[in-house]
Design a protein around this nucleic acid. Sequence first.
DNA 1: TCAATAGTTTAGAATTATTATAATGTAGTT
DNA 2: AACTACATTATAATAATTCTAAACTATTGA
Lengths: 142, 142
Amino acid sequence: MPKNCNFIEKLREVGLRPTKQRVNMCEVLFNREKTFHFTINDLVKMISEKMNEKISLATVYNTVHALEKKGYLKEISIDSHKSYFDTNTLAHHHFFDEDTHELIDLNESDIDKINIRKNITGKKINSVEVLVRVASDNQNQK
Amino acid sequence: MPKNCNFIEKLREVGLRPTKQRVNMCEVLFNREKTFHFTINDLVKMISEKMNEKISLATVYNTVHALEKKGYLKEISIDSHKSYFDTNTLAHHHFFDEDTHELIDLNESDIDKINIRKNITGKKINSVEVLVRVASDNQNQK
DNA sequence: TCAATAGTTTAGAATTATTATAATGTAGTT
DNA sequence: AACTACATTATAATAATTCTAAACTATTGA
């Protein structure tokens, strides 16, 4: 979604009612230069601050899942203990910093095209994603 | 770990007391031809059957984590709702079948060597792993 | 061999993340 | 304005995992 667009119309277009909570969530998520990664808890805090009032945790879960279903968010499974979401919904690769638990996008140009030689009969490939785990140079692997 | 080895000695070598529960867990996990993937619940069932008595869920969690820390198991994060473990502890790639939630290992030869062109100062690469999501050919992506 | 002790197992309680529920509220339509 | 369908909310329920403290067991060394 482009910067400074009207999220009321965007939401309506995809069949989601543009409630106060949803519009605020969209502004927090999409009204920015670069895509980013977040957890549900991060998002609750950010929206509550923006709105200057509480938002129900259940609403954030519901709305995140609604946006995910419409293709505006993507869930990232990296750490089994936390669920991350990404506003970059294209298939892409990540660095995961094992020290800070920070997630960093890799550009297409940072990695060679990946060719999968095996295929499974009756199954098609939906996505191919690489996870590069990194950690501080002067300490051992966790 | 090779087939039919004595897990009592193996456990002792890495500093884990060879208790009845741990030896049984090792036999379930490592006394087989091929590496495999499992969840904690799968494992509780398998060990209980093998022992012909109940094993505490807490013990399975403790022991899986002890084996993981010693490098005999590896956690795989694919599905944020379930935690999978793998007896193949080498960095390797996977197919994930989105229909059945089955996890299939990819051989080294099934995929070209991956070259990461970007690097982060002060960080070293610990692993590079590819996840290929597949689904039935005649249905849309989940 | 046998007691001391340090690590282990256990059932159940606690915690955490997520989903369900049901009452209240609100957007869109007439 | 009023109806209706969908949303939001606080709270309860559920599920996965971790914690706790008492009972147990493998190891050590007298």
